[in-house]
């Protein structure tokens, strides 16, 4: 099974957008200023998401999973690590580490399907499935390589 919390920092996607859990008086910061991290974040640009100490105000800790009706499923056996999906993902939801595509951050993916569209492999390494489809069933339905039509 693919780990849905793949490469997640502890707090990834724990909050609902517009959720009630943070509403209060003490959480109203002076000047409505939001801090992105806890502690010293000087070298954040050189830290991967899972190494960062995100604050509760960082949208990394929120989820938009409920926006999806369909989800992209990743098939690592077909992927050539071209990183097209990484560069064009509008939701920072392609998890690439050390030039390798590892999978999808389902807390932040909205199911737009751009990654599937830009995937150049044959068959595609990313395909859309119903939100409730489990990974094994999805992978078992993966199409064969298409022959080029003449």
């Amino acid at each position: 099974m693919q780990d849905l919390k793949l490469k997640a920092a502890e707090k990834r996607g724990i909050h609902q957008l517009g959720g009630d859990e943070l509403v209060g008086w003490d959480e109203v910061t002076q000047g409505i200023i939001l801090t992105s991290f806890e502690g010293d974040a000087s070298d954040i640009v050189h830290k991967k998401a899972e190494e960062r100490n995100y604050s509760d105000f960082n949208s990394y800790t929120a989820t938009v999973a409920s926006w999806r009706v369909k989800k992209p499923v990743f098939n690592i056996d077909v992927c050539i690590d071209c990183q097209n999906c990484w560069v064009w993902c509008p939701d920072t939801s392609i998890i690439s580490r050390d030039k390798q595509m590892l999978g999808i951050d389902y807390d932040h993916c909205k199911g737009c399907e751009v990654c599937v569209e830009v995937c150049p492999t044959n068959p595609k390494s990313l395909l859309m499935f119903g939100e409730q489809e489990d990974l094994e069933t999805a992978l078992s339905q993966w199409p064969e390589k298409k022959k080029k039509e003449k």
């Binding site: 200023i33 939001l34 801090t35 992105s36 991290f37 010293d40 974040a41 954040i44």
Partner: peptide, 8 residues
Amino acid sequence: SRPVTYGA
């Protein structure tokens, strides 16, 4: 060391 968002 402490990035901040102004004007939310």
